[in-house]
Simulated assay, not measured.
Amino acid sequence: MKPIFENEARQKFAEAYPEIPHIIAHNLRAHPLLSLDALAVLGEALPAPSVEYNKGDLPVGIDPQHVPANGMNIGDTIRNANTSGSWAVLKNIEQIPDYAALLLELLNELKPQIEAKTGNMLKPQGFIFVSSPNAVTPYHFDPEHNILLQLSGTKVMTQFPAGDPLYAPDETHEGYHTGGHRNLVWHDDLSVGGTEWPLHPGQGLFVPVMAPHHVKNGTAVSISLSITWRSDWSFAEADARAFNHMLRKWGASPRAPGRFPAQNRGKAIAWRILRKLRG
């Protein structure tokens, strides 16, 4: 059976992981679990907190409280993606056994390259995005190591340097890791620092942990699958950020955690102890 990621793709990934964004070729095109009809059924089967959808005609920067609903249910949003003018994400698809098997099949092909750099591959999760023509995913960041696989349609992800406070201030990181939203504040002058990554079917894009980005869909319905995982490093970075949040509340000006391969163990352990004491 032909692998999803062939040798050349795996080698390229190994050289760039975990901090360098890059295009990775894949062979995941038509799949019975990833058709619009199958995804509509999946959306209807997932629990409500695992489904997010709204109008797709959005600005790059928007307060999440102001994102307008599309007036439809998730099944109709996906089945009518060509005309619904919407954006939808199905979260944690691994809750459904068939999708869990697909996710692990994909990640297992890259597991040796992942674990050689960042240790055990932790918390594998999958997210499927179904976007109407010209839909926008606003400016945000995510805590996982992530490969976004383009399955149908096209899109352009504009990605910004991970860990640079110009694009996501330290206070914003700290707020996110203590319960805040993933969306970031956008200013038009940030655009000069972005790199555009056009994506077509058969291409994926590796997105480093917490790399800010926004996405603009092409002129056809887009289906994309994010295969994600965590590492001890990514969890330590998150916990160090949370500890810094507490230090800042006490009036300190804490130093930001280091990017990989920095371990950030001291602050991470301190935060975990405090969290345990708080119950």
Rank of each mutant, 00 (worst) to 15 (best):
D57M: 03
T77W: 13
N73Q: 12
L107Q: 04
G56C: 04
D63E: 11
P68Q: 07
I74P: 11
M72R: 15
L107D: 03
L102F: 02
Q65V: 11
E94F: 09
L103H: 10
A100Q: 14
G71I: 05
E105I: 00
E94P: 10
D76S: 15
E94Q: 15
N92I: 09
W87G: 03
P68K: 05
V67H: 09
N108H: 04
L106Y: 04
D57R: 05
W87M: 05
A88K: 06
L104Q: 12
L104E: 07
L58H: 05
K55G: 03
L106C: 07
T77F: 14
W87H: 11
I93Y: 10
H66P: 00
N70S: 13
V67R: 12
D76H: 15
I93S: 07
T77A: 10
G75E: 13
H66T: 08
I96P: 07
V89Q: 15
L106I: 11
G75D: 09
L90M: 13
N82Y: 06
G85I: 07
A88T: 02
I96N: 11
M72D: 10
Q95Y: 09
G71R: 09
A101N: 10
Q95M: 14
I96F: 01
Q95H: 10
P64H: 08
S86I: 03
N82Q: 14
L110N: 00
A88N: 07
